[in-house]
Amino acid sequence: MQTTLAQYKETQSSDAFALQNSKLLKVSLAGHTIQAKLGSMVAYQGDVTFEHAGSGGMSRMLKKAVTGEGQDLMKVTGSGEVFLADSAQDVHLVYLEGDKITVNGPNLLAFDTDIAWDIERIRGASGMMGGGLWNMSLQGTGFVAILSDGPPVLLNVASAPTFADAQAAITWSGGVTTAMKTDVKMKNLIGRGSGESVQMAFQGEGWVLVQPSEGQVVASGPQGSNGGALGSLLGG
């Protein structure tokens, strides 16, 4: 019997993080630890252990409690290989070399545990968006895996004034500063606006990655959109 399944054979790579395909990330643990979105494991081989990562400190725990931002993470350790995905979204790899990027929390899939992370507020957001707009910053050396709901576009911020929907802007580089832009024309006040009256503004030297969506709708229920049994086991 002929089969075409051979095209789906496991990818071989010397890198710890490698794309199995556009929607599936393969991580070779080789004795080191990564942090990944809670419930994102779809398969693994070998000796692999999962545990809830927590907030990593009182400051970040308080920020998560107040803002609702900051992805629920799990620590993944062992000597095997783990495959990660989330709702068949596209996966993109960024390798940091002492650099900093900012990521919209739901779009963060996994990163090397040596990379430091924190929760930061978008400048100018608090007065107009009910408590502020917050995202996760990551800085250090290692791989970061980012999710996008469809193929994104990479915009050069230095080339022109750049604006994006807050949910569509999924990550941007450390040389970029952000602020909020509002359109308060009279037509917006009387119900005839475009629906795009608040945007994020980007400026500086660097880039911003924008997905062709304002994010996937999260299913209601105790397991969320992709927690599954593993999310329950780890306390997600």
Rank of each mutant, 00 (worst) to 15 (best):
residue 236 G to S: 09
residue 3 T to M: 06
residue 129 M to Q: 12
residue 177 T to M: 03
residue 2 Q to K: 12
residue 151 P to A: 14
residue 28 S to Y: 00
residue 234 L to E: 10
residue 51 E to C: 07
residue 35 Q to M: 12
residue 232 S to N: 10
residue 179 A to M: 01
residue 127 G to N: 10
residue 31 G to C: 06
residue 231 G to S: 11
residue 27 V to M: 10
residue 51 E to F: 02
residue 29 L to F: 07
residue 86 D to H: 15
residue 2 Q to M: 10
residue 33 T to P: 02
residue 85 A to I: 03
residue 209 L to D: 06
residue 222 P to L: 05
residue 201 A to P: 00
residue 117 W to T: 10
residue 235 G to T: 09
residue 80 G to M: 11
residue 91 V to C: 06
residue 137 S to G: 02
residue 67 T to C: 09
residue 226 N to Q: 11
residue 132 G to E: 09
residue 174 G to H: 05
residue 204 G to A: 09
residue 58 M to Q: 11
residue 162 T to S: 14
residue 46 G to N: 02
residue 196 E to D: 11
residue 186 M to L: 13
residue 155 L to V: 14
residue 90 D to M: 13
residue 86 D to M: 11
residue 56 G to R: 03
residue 197 S to T: 02
residue 214 E to G: 07
residue 142 G to S: 04
residue 193 G to N: 02
residue 7 Q to I: 15
residue 123 R to L: 10
residue 194 S to R: 02
residue 116 A to Y: 10
residue 184 V to W: 01
residue 166 A to C: 10
residue 107 N to R: 11
residue 103 V to F: 03
residue 141 T to E: 12
residue 49 T to Y: 03
residue 171 T to Y: 12
residue 83 F to M: 12
residue 159 S to V: 06
residue 110 A to P: 08
residue 31 G to T: 07
residue 213 S to H: 14
residue 175 G to M: 02
residue 149 D to L: 01
residue 112 D to R: 08
residue 231 G to F: 06
residue 159 S to M: 11
residue 6 A to E: 13
residue 215 G to H: 05
residue 21 N to Q: 08
residue 114 D to V: 13
residue 217 V to A: 13
residue 203 Q to V: 02
residue 31 G to S: 08
residue 181 K to V: 12
residue 207 W to I: 05
residue 42 V to F: 03
residue 223 Q to K: 02
residue 3 T to K: 04
residue 177 T to K: 13
residue 128 M to F: 11
residue 115 I to H: 09
residue 161 P to L: 04
residue 176 V to G: 01
